[in-house]
Amino acid sequence: MHFRTDGRGQQVVAWEISPGAWKMAWIQDRNGTDKDWAGTGLYLNVVRTEGPNSGPGGNATDFPIGKHMQGVPQKQILATFVLTVSTMCGLDVSLAASGN
């Protein structure tokens, strides 16, 4: 997993789901906007990307982050998401975790 912050200061993780195939996820703050459709303020977004330092490719899917989870460090939320999704999909978790 490759962690960084983007130009908006949002926490981002990129991981290789198989050799040469990458995904990225980030936490987006939508508090006080009309895009806060679930009323939680924070959303986890996921999309494909070209690599660990590339931008999003395609349309992101968003998941509202429950208010009870908003005290958890964003890096922890993202890492848990990556490992859980990778495990559920039968992907190489060691590849995602190592960042190689």
Rank of each mutant, 00 (worst) to 15 (best):
K67G: 04
A97S: 12
M24G: 08
V46N: 06
T49R: 01
T5E: 12
Q11T: 13
V82E: 10
P73H: 08
N100S: 10
L42N: 02
G58R: 00
K23M: 12
G7W: 01
R30Q: 14
F63H: 15
A14W: 01
Q74R: 15
K35L: 08
V93D: 03
S94Y: 06
F81C: 10
G55K: 00
Q10E: 12
V72D: 12
H2D: 07
Q28M: 04
I17G: 04
A25E: 02
P19Q: 06
T61M: 14
V85H: 01
H68T: 15
C89N: 14
L42Y: 15
K67E: 12
M1T: 09
M88T: 07
W22Y: 14
Q10V: 01
G39P: 00
I27R: 00
G90Y: 13
P56D: 00
W15C: 10
F63I: 14
D34Y: 03
G55L: 02
V47L: 00
A14R: 05
G55M: 00
G99N: 07
T61N: 11
G39Y: 05
V47N: 11
K67I: 15
A14E: 05
R30Y: 07
D92R: 05
T87V: 02
Q10I: 01
N59C: 02
V72L: 13
T5M: 04
V85C: 08
A79I: 09
G39V: 07
A97P: 01
G57L: 13
P19S: 09
R30P: 01
N53M: 09
V12N: 11
G7E: 06
M24Y: 00
S86Y: 00
V82Y: 04
A96I: 01
L95I: 08
E50P: 02
T61G: 13
Q76H: 05
G32W: 03
G51H: 10
V46K: 03
N100K: 07
V47T: 11
M69R: 09
T84D: 14
S54M: 11
K75E: 15
G32P: 06
Q28P: 01
E16H: 01
L95Y: 05
H2S: 06
F3C: 03
N31H: 07
A25V: 04
A96T: 09
K35W: 05
A38C: 07
T61Q: 14
W15S: 08
N53K: 15
Q11C: 11
G90T: 04
T84F: 05
H2W: 12
G9V: 07
Q28S: 09
H2R: 11
A21Y: 03
D34W: 01
W37F: 06
S94I: 04
V82A: 12
A14C: 13
V72N: 10
N53H: 11
L95V: 11
S94T: 15
L44M: 09
S94N: 13
G99Y: 01
G55H: 01
